[in-house]
Nucleic acid binder design. Structure first.
Lengths: 351, 351
DNA sequence: TTTTCTAAATGAAACGTTTCACTCTGCACA
DNA sequence: TGTGCAGAGTGAAACGTTTCATTTAGAAAA
């Protein structure tokens, strides 16, 4: 009795074709198909037969099988908090571009600034045979795997794990210099601790050093983890006398913070840039070639991405530097009173 | 002679521990370890032994092996042009969040609006045993795989492939209504064809219908693939008489376009919103809880993401609707002359 | 014609899981 | 004491590749 048993290899089955199917179809061995698929040396006549069979069956390599056997996946994991923040979205974008250009792919994991999730994501990517991990994390105690190459962004873990970052110190200096050039006499530096640890800390150091150098008075207000934004408003109000702010320039550690501070100031009846000028950090724009709305220290996002990828794929792990600082630049937006001509690219600001 | 042959199973080897190692360490069988790892029913004493061994060896599941055997990966692929565009970045973010909440992961692929790359990405994700594909693509001839569940965003392929989109038609209507309410008498609709096919086309239809209904005059300018942005400037200049623009309201098919048009207008000496009011589409903001800079029709990004994920993971494929339109809303930014009170959330606009 | 050599095809083993047909143990019941 | 049964552990097979020790075929040399 001819039952349609489940084991029966009916020719009309629907499952995906495998290399064996291709081999059978082409009348060659498994190894030969593998060699064709991987571009190894194969007799021309055989190659044609195999390629024909591949086309006929619409065969696709199964990467699980391949990864299992080879132990690597041509995939690099990127751990970032989210892609709703423009700076992170840009990083993810440019890292992906750099990876794809080299034949790699990106597995994206979000940590949402959460220590637990950072560990969770690390655990997940380790299970996936990724060939490397690029991480922009906040948990200082995070245990990076030792059996997979890692590169961090903005956070230095150890000499064994290269860290790529913008030149934060110099960014701070540039901001102070700019304020001095714009004639400011009393500045404020604002930052939130929870989202600004380690390397980016140096923004303050550079800022402070330049202020001292230029003889400009300055005040610092730091918020630590969990403190509400309203503390900044309290701080600003303390420095408000007769409707006038003590400060004529405010340096915010991120553009995000800058925008919030500007909104705060607006609520207090203080005009930007007329009453107080503001400079942020990161270089956020709505769309790639549009203007900066907030004057800012621009991070070289594409260079950072490129450098991370280069280092994570570097063959000679020992030769990698342990810290790379990439140059930043100042870009004028609508929150500073630029002397006269604004360079062409910043014209026609959106009001 | 005791040679250190490569086959020798030296106890101090550095490679990752496998389930077999755990089984040996715990003194149980492979199957039992598998059951523990997957949370199946196992005698308490055995479970403890296995868990102890897992901890001791720092064992991690190898997903390649698991995926190979099970044929699925708890991974959904998302194909979008990039994450430098805020709207796409937001989509990627929210889709990821929705997936992770359900125990899934996201494999992100960028197409850069390129037809070839879209096909390439499709090929790649198919090789990776992904359990589904969410695609926001532009190639109308793209061949979506039939053996993997697919959901598209903003582009309708066929009744078999569900499409999730904002209510574009109604968004167009709302924009026209708003302009009418703001007292506009002559409107323009601007769009670029290459980045606005299919479903989003309906923005124009809704806009036109409402204009007719309200008796408002309007003009349409469409750019097709590859036409330079300067065509819009030509168009606007044609409608410029004695330094005054014919139009008192411009509806742009995307916020991105709106920003560029505003810059153009600024270059022509025309003030927004004093001389002409502008409404965009998408709902782009710098940071989540900050104001809309451009007045806009806001897409329900989070709902779209949630819906896509729900449909791609839906067990009952046949029960899925083939087109889902999610409601949009108008949000005031700085590019329209709102009558009086702007709702709380839009106060304190960044200038 | 026989021998030697080379290039390339072959196919079995292995990668780390999951699955499932068996086996084993201990207990309830007669 | 014997039988039956349920619950749970066991271990071999299989998933689709890559790899590599063999085999084979064909050409060159003798």
């Amino acid at each position: 009795m001819k039952s349609t048993g489940p084991k029966e290899k009916t020719p009309g089955r629907r499952s995906k074709p495998t290399m064996s199917d291709v081999a059978r179809e082409a009348g060659v061995s498994l190894g030969t198909v593998s060699n064709v698929v991987n571009g190894l040396k194969v007799n021309e006549a055989y190659r044609l037969k195999v390629e024909e069979a591949i086309r006929k069956l619409d065969y696709q390599v199964n990467n699980s099988g391949r990864n299992l056997k080879t132990g690597h996946s041509y995939t690099i994991a990127l751990i970032i908090p989210n892609t709703r923040t423009p700076h992170f979205a840009a990083l993810a974008n440019d890292i992906n571009v750099a990876l794809v250009r080299r034949g790699y792919h990106m597995l994206l994991s979000f940590s949402d600034y959460d220590y637990k999730q950072e560990e969770e994501m690390l655990r997940f990517v380790r299970q996936n045979n990724v060939d490397g991990i690029i991480a922009l994390t906040y948990n200082p105690r995070l245990e990076l795997p030792v059996d997979i190459p890692c590169v961090t962004i903005d956070r230095f873990f150890s000499a064994q794990v290269p860290c790529v970052t913008a030149d934060n110190y110099n960014g701070g200096r540039i901001a102070a210099e700019k304020f001095a050039e714009l004639g400011c006499r009393k500045l404020a530096f604002l930052r939130i601790g929870s989202v600004l640890t380690n390397e980016p800390n140096k923004r303050k150091d550079g800022f402070a050093a330049a202020c001292l150098e230029y003889g400009v008075d300055f005040d610092v207000k730091l918020l630590t983890d969990g403190e509400p934004m309203s503390r900044f408003e309290d701080f600003l109000r303390e420095h408000l006398h007769d409707g006038r702010l003590d400060f004529d320039g405010i340096f915010c550690a991120t553009d995000n913070l800058a925008y919030r501070v500007i909104r705060m100031l607006s609520g207090m009846g203080i005009k930007v840039p007329e009453d107080v000028q503001v400079i942020g950090f990161d270089g956020i724009r709505m769309f790639g070639d549009l203007n900066y709305i907030c004057s800012t220290i621009v991070q070289p996002v594409t260079d950072i991405a490129e450098t991370c990828v280069e280092m994570i794929l570097s063959k000679d792990l020992a030769a990698r530097p342990s810290l790379v600082c990439l140059p930043v630049r100042y870009a004028a937006g609508g929150t500073t009173r630029e002397p006269e001509e604004i360079p062409e690219e910043f014209r026609g600001d959106i009001k």
